[in-house]
Design a protein around this nucleic acid. Structure first.
Length: 423
RNA sequence: GGAGAGAUGGCAGAGUGGUCGAAUGCGGUAGUCUUGAAAACUAUUGUACCCACAAGGUACCGGGGGUUCGAAUCCCUCUCUCUCCGCCA
């Protein structure tokens, strides 16, 4: 969420920058400013009324002490009237605040100047590519390979739970474990502190990172306890810093977490859902950073470079794209997507999304820092990225490395496994 | 799940209707002293909003609601924590 001060101070500029998202936000922006003016007017009056009430209440205490019953009773009358007035005003004020909140929550993050204009993923900008696309004699999609080698059982998942909950077996399960260990070890080497977070979150956490209230339908909801299954470790990990005021010297904050992720994927039925392409439960290692505002883009570049080393070490052909305005997430200012080429399907699969949210999440989280010698707190910047999501990485590994002799395991994973080929 | 106790500032911990944004101690910051440090002493030390700034004002003592002219203090409710019992990996 943008702050009202951000909006007021740079109104025209913000409207202009938001237009990169292919939508005109001038009306909402104007409404927000108008409502804020309204709110301030009400608060002025309310504060004055309360001040008077407080004054009278104090004087009543003194009058009683002095035994001036009559005067005290007169003062009470006045106080009652003031109270009614302040009640009215505070109701108005709450309504105004809620309305402002609602308007603000409909305004997305301001795209970074480097975000290209565009409508769909076709307008995304290719930043870099690497690796070599394998020249396979036979292209086999992973869902055939997994059943051929009996390493992932989709049918069994259907039986136990439902579609989108695969069962990993034997070498399939071991590869999952190896990938998780590999990703965590790499993150550790890169200075990220490992976190093992809760897999369910409460409402406040969901609000902090922006899943609630908008994307409520995308999370599994335990209504009995009002908890939600996490769609990504970003949520619990970033919320570690909800309601926190940091010191400048606490930066940089680097965290990583492995977790299972749960997504209802409502509304995406039938679209690229075969095999591992889109699941309700999957595993992912996430990196999260909290950064000084002046350093956050440096941080973003660092994260992109880091994720790039992962796909390189896994020897996967990849490309990095900068999302265009139309494809950019609501909360993000700049996002780089990583895609790996999956030869069996002849498709690029998105395996990581690395974003700078600037102060958009921090505002909701109330995550601030205090510069040395300054009294005012400022919002920190938050960033996160997948490093990496397992299922599509696995799909690409299986498809790209498949030969007549079986599926070869990339070198970096071999030390985590007691086999180097699946056959 | 049952019974009881509790939730106060960075921490510890007073405060049971008015003079409490809140004693005291510790910690933090600045200064005095010192070659430097420690100790000691002095001052300062929550967040947000209104206000151009300052002055001043308002709100916040786990969350929400209520009683009252006035609530950290009384009532209701929710959440959480602790102790005991039960169950349990």
């Amino acid at each position: 969420m943008l702050t009202i001060n951000q909006i007021k101070n740079n109104k025209e500029e913000i409207i202009k920058k938001l237009s990169v998202r292919n939508k005109d936000f001038s009306e909402l922006i104007n409404k927000a400013i108008e409502e804020d003016n309204n709110r301030r007017a009400i608060q002025n009056e309310l504060d004055a009324t309360l001040a008077k009430s407080n004054q009278i209440a104090k004087s009543i205490g003194l009058l009683f002490k002095e035994g001036k019953q009559e005067e005290a009773n007169n003062a009470k009358q006045e106080a009652v009237q003031l109270k009614e007035k302040s009640k009215e005003l505070s109701e108005k004020m709450n309504a105004s605040k809620n309305n402002l909140q609602k308007i603000l929550s409909e305004i997305p993050n301001i795209p970074h100047p480097s975000v290209p204009a565009g409508k769909t993923d076709e307008d995304n900008e290719l930043v870099r590519e690497g690796g070599t696309i394998p020249n396979l004699t036979k292209k086999v999609p992973h869902w055939e390979l997994t059943s051929k080698f009996d390493i992932i059982d989709f049918e069994l998942g259907n039986k136990i739970t439902g579609a989108g909950f695969p069962v990993y077996k034997g070498k399939g399960a071991k590869i999952q474990r190896a990938l998780i260990a590999f990703f965590l070890d790499e993150a550790d080497k890169a200075g990220y502190k490992e976190i093992m977070p809760p897999l369910m979150i409460n409402e406040a956490s969901g609000f902090g990172t922006g899943q609630l209230p908008d994307k409520e339908g995308q999370m599994y909801h335990m209504t009995e306890d009002n908890l939600f299954m996490i769609p990504t470790a970003e949520v619990p990990v970033t919320n570690i810093y909800r309601d926190v005021i940091l010191n400048e010297e606490d930066f940089p904050i680097k965290m990583t977490a492995y977790s299972s992720c749960f997504r209802r994927e409502a509304g995406s039925y039938g679209k690229d859902v075969r095999g591992l392409n889109r699941l309700h439960q999957f595993d992912k290692v996430e990196i999260v950073r909290i950064s000084h505002p002046e350093k956050s883009y440096e941080t973003l570049d660092e994260m992109v470079a880091y994720v790039e080393t992962l796909v390189q070490k896994l020897e996967l052909p990849y490309r990095i794209v900068r999302l265009c305005g139309g494809d950019l997430g609501f909360t993000s200012a700049l996002t780089y997507d990583f895609e790996v080429y999956s030869a069996g399907q002849d498709k690029w699969l998105e395996v990581s999304s690395v974003s700078n949210f600037e102060s958009f999440q921090a505002n909701r989280l109330k995550l601030r820092y205090k510069a040395k010698g300054e009294k005012q707190t400022k919002l920190a910047h938050t960033l996160n990225g997948s490093a990496l999501a397992l299922p599509r990485i696995l799909a690409a590994l299986l498809e790209n490395n498949y030969t007549e002799d079986g599926i070869k395991i990339p070198k970096v994973l071999q030390k985590y496994l007691n086999f180097d080929v699946i056959n």
